[in-house]
Amino acid sequence: MIDEGLQNEMKKQGVFTTSLQDLYNWGRKSSVWPLQFGLACCAIEMIAASMARFDISRFGAEVFRPSPRQADLMIVAGTVTKKMLPQVVRLYNQMPEPKYVIAMGACAISGGPFKEGYNVLKGVDRYLPVDVHIPGCPPRPEALLHALMTLQKKIETDALTGEKRPRHLQADAPSEFPIPEFGEHDLVPSKNEQLWKPAPVVRNE
């Protein structure tokens, strides 16, 4: 590792140095390919973000891939219903590592306005590890761009080695998650216990 001060000093002299880690992360963060995957209303805003006015290609993420095999980022744009969830998890499992998930909109975060529905999943993070949440119903395209930048910052700080290295560099970390099955009244199981633990109920008595 080059000392940061020395690096800056050399930069002034016209010599650029970098580390393998920085180079690797820079490459990854500048070409995040999202999965072309729209569920509901938020998908329209996702499309709007890729169109002329908002232009997601400024961030290297305009290559929407219809196939999960070629994508790095799953933008869960819209309400995840219980009928749709097995397919969502399957698509995630089919994506190659390293992969990231953005939960776009209130529905993907918690069920949103449709939380009371019998067929609505109360948050996609019950089954998938979510990296960035975007609140809003639907979030504006700017919010999606902000989420993308947040994700890029996260990628930038990934360590190649050591304890804190990300999941895709740990051989024993899970890359696929179990797909729930349709039950008679609900999905079985109704949540991934290893992934999601309910937040405690705050009681003020």
Binding site: K83, E116, K122, G123, F182, G183, E184, H185, D186, S190
Partner: peptide, 24 residues
């Protein structure tokens, strides 16, 4: 048509009880 085939209940009936996965 809307729910999956293995589903047993009729959810729009007035006395239907939704699965208890209500978020806190």
């Amino acid at each position: 048509i809307l729910m999956w085939d293995a589903f047993k209940d009729f959810p729009m009936r007035r006395d239907y009880v939704a699965p208890d996965d209500y978020e806190y």
